[in-house]
Computed example of a mutant assay.
Amino acid sequence: MVVRRPPGRRAQILAVAADRFHRSGYHQVSMTEVAAGVGITAPALYRHFRGKPELLDRAVRLGLDALADGLRTADSTDALAAALAAVAVGHRPLGTLVQRDARLLAPARRASLRRELRADTALMAAVLRAERPELPDRDAELLCWSALSACAGLSYQSAAPQPRRAEAVLRELVAAVLAVSLDGTDLCSLPADGLGEAGGEMPVTPGPRPQARREELLVAAVRLFHERGFDNVSTDQLGAAVGITGPSVYRHFDSKAQLLAASLVRSRERLWHEVDGAISAADGPAAALEAGLAAYVGFARRNGDYLGAMLSETERLAPSDRRVAVDFRRDFLRTWVGLLRLVRPECDAVEARIRVHALFALVNDGVRNRPHSARPDLGDCLLRLGRAVLGVS
């Protein structure tokens, strides 16, 4: 007797895998869990896919294919906004899969995905420049990358908003991003000493040698975990980054996991101190929102490695540390949502959350997306784009 597989089984598997990877992180999901989500056995799952790497690869490709299909038929900026919004809602896990998990794929596959995204951006930029021929190529490309990033912010919401509402808000904010003028940006609008190249680190305060070494390890850990992933960084590599042997790392931290947790805690403390301090010192909600935006952009440009590690490695924390990190994100988000609603009373909580998530995704990507991250006017560009996303430009 021939046993027929249910139609669409591969698509069903990919949908479940994408959702599980999105919610829990690639490393926390097993093939058995994916199989159970589909209602089949693990051996049956292996008849469709050879392993988790292929599942991740195919799940990312499914979303990117939908994006490319939508963009190919877009002949105006309104159509671009509609296409991006539809993919963001219809393939909600795609943002986290691309920004967080795709780096775990083989180098050749990562390069291929990057080429596909560049091709998508080129399609968008061609449409944008047809409507705005005065735009330099680099500005058109930055606006398009920023629109993609803003839509990816929907992936980071803990609860999915009503699809039609989400699409409407995303269409509006994408249109606003694509309409931003980057011409005449002020290269000195933000302090040069506070806005180094993306991925730069905060200077280490001199002190007693053991304490300084601990601080150096925290900085090096954030950079290495961001660049290579927690599992791909050894204690020997961590030690070599600060001029000590691998075993010497354990004089400062009991384990690599403890070092990861401490490095993320230290960066969170800096983020809260800088941004909340700027918001608290401002006079009135509008000034506070502007000050908070400038502070967040400044922090992001100095601490791109932390933002990358926060996105990619939080799931590698011990459960108790992970809960603390998630609680911090919620509190931070709540502050911004409340502030935006004070500035824009017509904006309800659903729209405010979509816009704030879009802001963070846009800035976090912007400081790490070369070659645009090397622009000397990046700080001012991100301020303009951030205002557009929040709807306060």
Score class of each variant (00 low, 15 high):
V2Q: 05
R9G: 04
R10Q: 13
A11V: 04
A15M: 01
A15I: 00
H22K: 10
H22D: 13
G25I: 12
V34F: 11
V34T: 12
V38Y: 09
A42D: 10
A44R: 14
F49H: 14
R61K: 06
G63D: 03
A66V: 02
A66F: 00
A66E: 14
L67T: 05
A74F: 03
L84Q: 12
A85W: 11
A88K: 05
V89P: 03
P93M: 10
L97A: 05
R103V: 14
R115Q: 10
L117Q: 15
T121M: 10
A122Q: 12
L128R: 01
R132F: 08
E134A: 15
L135P: 02
L135F: 11
D137K: 00
E141M: 03
S146V: 06
S155F: 09
R164E: 14
R165E: 12
E167S: 10
A168D: 07
L170I: 06
E172G: 14
L173H: 13
S181F: 02
D186T: 08
P191R: 03
A192V: 13
E197S: 14
P203S: 09
T205K: 11
P210F: 11
Q211C: 03
R214A: 07
R214C: 02
R214E: 06
L217V: 06
V219E: 05
A220G: 02
G229C: 02
D231L: 13
N232L: 09
V233T: 07
T235S: 11
A240T: 04
A241T: 09
A241H: 08
V242Y: 06
T245R: 15
P247M: 07
F253C: 02
D254A: 15
S255N: 10
L264I: 09
R270V: 12
L271I: 01
H273N: 04
D276T: 12
D276V: 12
I279T: 14
S280E: 08
A281I: 11
D283T: 13
D283R: 15
G284M: 10
A294P: 01
A294G: 11
R301L: 15
Y306N: 03
L307F: 12
L307R: 02
S312F: 03
E313K: 10
L317C: 11
A318D: 15
R322C: 04
A325K: 03
D327K: 04
R329C: 07
R334H: 14
T335K: 13
L340T: 11
L342T: 12
V343H: 11
R344M: 09
R344G: 06
C347R: 10
C347Y: 03
A349D: 15
E351Y: 08
A352E: 03
I354M: 13
V356Y: 02
L359S: 00
R368W: 01
R368Q: 14
H372E: 11
S373N: 13
S373Y: 00
C381M: 08
R384C: 03
V392W: 02
